[in-house]
Amino acid sequence: MSEYNDMGFKVKDCTLITRMAGVKEAMNLRELEERLRVCPDECLFHHFCETVIRPTFDYPDYTNDFALWAGSQLRDKILAERLSVLNPYKCKSVDELRQQILDIFEERLSETDHILWAPKNRAFQFLQAVTVVFETDIRLNRPYDFYEQLPNMSHGSIYYHFIEARRRTKWMVDDFTAWLSEFEIEVKPLIKTLSEIDFYFLTLAELKNTLVTVTTEFFKEAKHEKNIN
């Protein structure tokens, strides 16, 4: 699913539509562990990677839905912290991610002498989502357009091109990097800076600000030195 061609980089936007994953709800850690073993890959991806695109205001205490539920409903801070520090984008496959989560669950179960339960009506519901992709009016033809248009991109666009792309593309890189790599050597420092952004622990608003900041800095310097556009 290439986002660019001779016509330039066509910036997309996206939303999610969620559905039940077909896995029974979980009321405690033992049930969560059992269900996690069998839930679809898409469900794992949704609860670990799509948390960021859901509407929220707070800087969430934890970075994924399992950790959020463990913290807020099971009131198990230790479990929540261990789950939260897992970065799914460092895993080579969903299976590897699943195994890491199961290890954490098993470790926690072995440490506790009683099973913590969620309150009534606060079960963990297993969901998955379809990413719905939309066209936007934004086109990028040269690297400088990236700098100019970033502030105009929606959070959906940032999510789709910078985060979700890693699931979609063969080399697991973001769309901006893949596109910038087609240009001359001078944008390599920007590509390197983009690759160093620890995006998993940022909200989409923070991520967008970070992208705007690093891109602005790069083009300011580059313009000063070599007049890149």
Binding site: I17, V130, T131, V133, F134, R168
Partner: peptide, 16 residues
């Protein structure tokens, strides 16, 4: 979107 998904098939991505 749901109607489109039912028509096109429920893949991970749906291009509108």
């Amino acid at each position: 979107t749901l109607m489109l998904g039912l028509r096109k098939g429920l893949a991970n991505h749906l291009i509108a």
